[in-house]
Write a protein that binds this DNA or RNA. Structure first.
Length: 1019
RNA sequence: GGGCCCAUGGCUCAGUUGGUUAGAGCGUUCGGUUCACAUCCGAAAGGUCACAGGUUCAAGUCCUGUUGGGCCCACCA
């Protein structure tokens, strides 16, 4: 390591160096240590669907900041990394790509081949994601990286499902799914989009019949946009209070096209008197509202569709027709039978599949559910009693409101990529067949009707239908084992078939906090990557789980509070009997320049590595942390930097939406140099030989400038450390500025600690920046310059300087890990021993250094106030210099009218005046008179005069002071009005009244000074 | 339709339980090459705190409504 800092900081070299160094030294590893407290953060597992964007970068920055900070505080800080298989999203990406590139669907290649392809994709993107995380400085324990489909997580998934199955929490039910008839698959809600299409609105009627089935002549009218669903109608529904229909409620109608009789029912939740005719046909199997109505009223669910979108056998003569063709024929038939009243054209909002772009059909299918009542209640209680706390608190409402609905959780998905549901079933026709199917498992029927399996299956195989075999034709078993235990083979051999569906992705991510720590294995620590030796292994014990669970804080974004956070709490309580984390910090979302959230579908995502390349990781992290407040999302306008002339073109919505559309890659023309360039986009890869713009955002100048400042301040310090000798520094040796900077440092350290405790990252960043720049650099370093040149005073100055730099690097490390590490290592070369009381050897890495906790006694308010007057005086002199355009080098004289004790304080720092403002303090005291031709200023308790004979325009100075006096009079009037207000005097607290009076007195004194100056100038 | 959040100088944002003269960074203007930093230093200009009511001695801050924006959820015969 060099003993000097280079002229500029090379961010990318530092990043490469320290990422590897930290890895080699194992500084990020976290192993159980009973002597210390743990601090656990589980990463919100990124999906392996694609690369990380700025939202992940923000999320990671905060987690790493917290992890590094807690580690420095002496905790065993575990940050658990990993990725999510993201069932639907990943399968969709791979399928889409396969369709585009090879024209194949998953049915063409089969289940195993598709899953293999997805694994390949996963490996590629997982590597990319983990690399991105490393590049942003993430101090994860990389030995522990997990994937939701890996063996450890899979075991936890199967065990949880099995436990829930045995506890009766799992059941099979019907549910309407979004069915893509083209791809013949169910698609998730977020995989569908609304599009308005031209359609028709038919009004028809059904004839009312009497008890013998004869038409009474009455008819009931309704409207529909999907006449073919008539084939599956189970009722006609009206509002119970709708007087037009009260007489018809309970009567029967006939569906003319198929001759089925259905009842007229009343349901206030479904029927709306003000819509259409007020009566509505009910098709429970093909409409979500009708489905809910069907459940409420015990209606039959008549499915009329085949998976390919044709009408099935329930459609009578229409069976086999495509639903659109069936629609036409049903309408024609209704018309010919005289039941069509009118047709209107209408724009219909219709759901479409993202993938096939075809219309979605609501389709009733068998799904697995988890009963939520008790599980949800437990999770609500955990937040209500404070075992889990949200920051900011308002998000607890989102969580509780959602859980309070206690809607059962549909956990099955019609996909191939994911955890296959560990349920096996066989069709039988009676209980003896069922027992026969179970013969190989040593099954006997207990007297109470439940099934007894042979002991070796206890806890590994369970039957859903017990007690009471033959409750249905189907026998359903749940098997916890994977293939190795052979039970699955036995099941297959006995004729059982495994459910083809997989579990909802959130089922496995819900287990993340305990699954990653090895649950349900309580005997062994979870395996480490590449079978690395586990330093914390203990026989018969999973110490990793018992030590790191529950976690400390979950850091995530608000949109998955329900999907993920709630479910982690719920499964944590269910499996572990304890909450998965104590705090939930909800951070802002990253928005683009137009205020939209970043997402792949909008094409406005930004790869953090692009910005890191331009600004450096620390700059990006520091800026991001500075934007992480309580309420406001982070707006991040970006631009394209022209590769030819470096001019920046701000990104617009048009840019985000530019796609090749079969032609050449789109490009942007630079407004300045008129040349074209390509740009990074989620829609295409730029041509290999094309000039490609990079993404920039001037918001990151904030962090970059700060890093530059820090670097140069330390560079300056290090250039002045020649001859540094470690020695205790006594109180007597400390100069005013030393005591001041230590006071400020102690305050800053306390403040940053408190703010981080409360997750106020924006304020913490601001505090540390202001200390570094506005206090340490602007004042302390400047005041140190003369002392460092003087051999007499140099030693103490160096020792204090080294101490402050050391503390500063520690304070900044969680925010800016690379630059602080880089500087720290140089400091170690120059000043291996440091400390004020007793110099001690510094640790090798700032990452393992202790977080600064400085004595409260160092904070000296009186001293800070005196120092502040010095600063104000100097600022006032600078102001005069600037207003009168006086050459920076010109030496000025200063006279101060003030009390003797203030005079003494000012005289004690005469050299500082000279040095910082090229001004000699000539005299100070009560008897100072304004020298002729002076510029003047008032600080309230002291007035300053700077003789500027010949340089100052008397009239201009008079005008300046008159303006100042006017301003003061305005303030004074405001305060006087307050004190003259009887209401204020009677009702305001005494403290506030006193404050106003004091301020008023100060303002009046200052006005007196200014008025005297005006008088003097007017003479 | 329900819920949550936001609206403060040209831009991006702070503003603690209501209480002195509403702050910062960038941008703008003016002035600066003495050996840490022009990614810098010094100075200045720039705000009726979205709008309308209300509560209060006192409102950027609390309440109600309006407008505009974001997000989540529900729904659209």
């Amino acid at each position: 390591m060099s003993t000097e800092l280079a002229r500029t900081y090379d961010a990318s070299a530092a990043q490469t160096r320290w990422v590897q160094h930290w890895l080699d030294r194992g500084y990020c590893n976290a192993d159980p240590d009973p002597a210390r407290q743990p601090h656990t953060i589980m990463i919100p597992l990124p999906n392996v669907t694609g690369a990380l964007h700025m939202g992940h970068c923000l999320n990671g920055t905060i987690q790493d900041l917290l992890t590094r900070w807690r580690r420095m505080q002496g905790r065993v800080a575990l940050w658990m990394p990993g990725t999510d298989h993201a069932g639907i999203a990943t399968q969709a990406v791979v399928e889409r790509r396969m369709l585009e590139e090879e024209g194949k669907t998953r049915h063409d290649i089969g289940r195993d081949a598709l899953v293999q392809r997805i694994w390949k994709w996963k490996n590629e993107y997982e590597a990319r994601i983990l690399n991105q995380l490393k590049q942003i400085g993430s101090s994860c324990d990389w030995r522990r990286v997990r994937f939701t489909l890996d063996e450890v997580c899979s075991r936890a998934v199967r065990r949880t499902f099995f436990r829930m199955f045995c506890d009766g929490l799992v059941y099979r039910g019907k549910r309407l799914v979004n069915w893509d008839t083209y791809l013949q698959t169910a698609v998730a809600d977020d995989e569908v989009f609304h599009e308005d299409v031209a359609g028709h609105f038919w009004t028809m009627n059904y004839p009312v019949v009497d008890s013998s089935g004869k038409p009474t002549g009455e008819r009931i009218s309704f409207s529909t946009t999907r006449p073919e669903t008539m084939l599956g109608d189970a009722a006609v529904c009206v509002h119970p209070a709708d007087e037009r229909y009260t007489s018809l409620i309970g009567r029967t109608v006939i569906i003319p096209v198929i001759g089925r009789s259905i009842p007229i029912i009343a349901d206030p939740l479904l029927a709306d008197r003000n819509l259409g005719t007020g009566a509505v046909k009910v098709t429970p199997a093909h409409d979500p509202n009708d489905y809910a109505c069907g459940l409420r009223n015990g209606l039959p669910m008549i499915n009329i569709l085949n998976p390919d979108g044709t009408i099935n056998e329930n459609g009578g003569e229409f069976a086999g027709l495509d639903r659109m063709e069936a629609r036409k024929r049903v309408v024609a038939r209704m018309e010919s039978l005289g039941h069509l009243e009118k047709v209107e054209d209408r724009i219909i909002p219709l759901m479409h599949s993202d993938r096939s772009k075809t219309a979605i059909e609501p389709f009733l299918s068998d799904q697995w559910f988890i009963r939520m009542d008790k599980l949800a209640q437990d999770a609500i209680t955990a937040v209500e009693d404070g075992r889990v706390r949200f920051f900011p608190q308002r998000y607890a409402k989102t969580y509780i409101d959602w859980l309070a609905e206690k809607r059962d959780w549909c956990i099955s998905r019609q996909l191939w990529w994911g955890h296959r549901i560990p349920v096996w079933s066989i069709r039988t026709s009676n209980s003896s067949e069922q027992l026969a199917a179970l013969a190989g498992f040593g099954a006997t029927l207990r007297p109470d009707g439940t099934i007894q399996l042979a002991p070796e299956y206890n806890g590994r195989l369970a039957a859903l239908l017990a007690p009471g075999l033959a409750a249905g034709e189907e026998l359903i078993l749940c098997c916890v084992d994977a293939g190795q235990e052979h039970i699955e083979q036995q099941l297959a051999a006995a004729g059982f078939e495994q459910d083809p569906d997989v579990l909802d992705t959130w089922f496995s991510s819900a287990l993340w906090p305990h699954a990653t720590l090895g649950w349900p294995d309580r005997q062994h620590n979870p395996p480490l990557a590449d079978s690395a030796p586990d330093p914390a292994a203990a026989p018969g014990e999973n110490r990793v789980l018992s030590y790191f669970y529950p976690g400390s804080v979950l850091v995530t974004s608000r949109d998955i509070i329900t999907l993920w956070v709630a479910r982690m709490v719920l499964t944590g309580l269910y499996n572990m009997g304890d909450v998965p984390f104590h705090h939930v910090y909800i951070h802002p979302k990253i928005l683009d320049g137009m205020g939209q959230t970043m997402s792949k579908s909008k094409g406005n995502g930004v790869d953090p590595l692009e910005l890191i390349e331009k600004y450096g990781t620390d700059a990006v992290r520091f800026t991001i942390a500075s934007l992480c407040g309580e309420t406001q999302d982070v707006r991040l306008p970006v631009g394209y930097e022209c590769p030819h002339c470096q001019a920046v073109t701000p990104q617009t919505k048009e840019h985000q939406e530019m796609k090749p559309l079969g032609g050449p890659n789109p490009s942007i023309r630079c407004a300045k140099c008129k040349k074209s360039f390509q740009f990074p986009s989620p829609w295409f890869t730029p041509d290999p030989d094309a000039a490609v713009a990079r993404i920039v955002s001037e918001r990151f100048d904030y962090g970059r400038n700060f890093c530059n400042k820090l670097w140069n301040a330390c560079r300056f310090a290090f250039l002045n450390l020649e001859g540094y000798s470690p020695q205790p520094v006594t109180a007597a040796e400390l100069q005013v500025e030393d005591r001041w900077v230590l006071s400020r440092l102690a305050s800053a350290a306390r403040e940053v600690t408190t703010l981080l405790d409360r997750y106020h990252f924006d304020q913490a960043t601001k505090a540390v920046r202001e200390f570094t720049w506005n206090e340490f650099c602007d004042w302390y370093l400047e005041m140190l310059k003369p002392r460092l040149r003087n051999p007499e005073s140099r030693g103490t100055a160096q020792r204090v300087l080294v101490f402050v730099v050391d503390s500063l690097l520690r304070l900044l490390h969680p925010f800016a890990p690379f630059i602080t590490e880089e500087i720290w290592h140089t400091l170690n070369e120059l000043a291996p021993l440091r400390g004020l009381d007793q110099p001690t050897p510094a640790v090798e890495s700032v990452m393992t250094a202790a977080w600064p906790q400085l004595p409260t006694q160092w904070i000296d308010d009186a001293l800070e106030r005196r120092f502040e007057r010095l600063q104000q005086t100097i600022n006032a002199v600078r102001n005069v210099r600037s207003v009168y355009n006086i050459a920076p080098g010109a030496q000025l004289k200063l006279f101060m009218r003030c009390t003797p004790d203030v005079a003494a304080q000012l005289e004690a720092v005469t050299e500082q005046f000279d040095f910082l403002s090229k001004t000699m303090l000539e005299a100070a005291g009560l008897d100072i008179k304004r020298p002729a031709g002076s510029a003047s200023f008032s600080l309230g308790d002291a007035d300053g005069y700077i003789p500027l004979e010949g340089l100052i325009d008397r009239q201009a100075e008079l005008a300046r002071q008159t303006k100042e006096a006017e301003k003061l009079r305005g303030f004074i009037r405001g305060h006087e009005a307050k004190l003259a207000n009887p209401g204020f005097m009677a009702k305001a607290p005494e403290k506030v009244v006193n404050e106003i009076q004091e301020t008023l007195a100060g303002l009046r004194a200052q006005l007196t000074s200014v008025e005297r100056m005006v008088a003097e100038l007017s003479e």
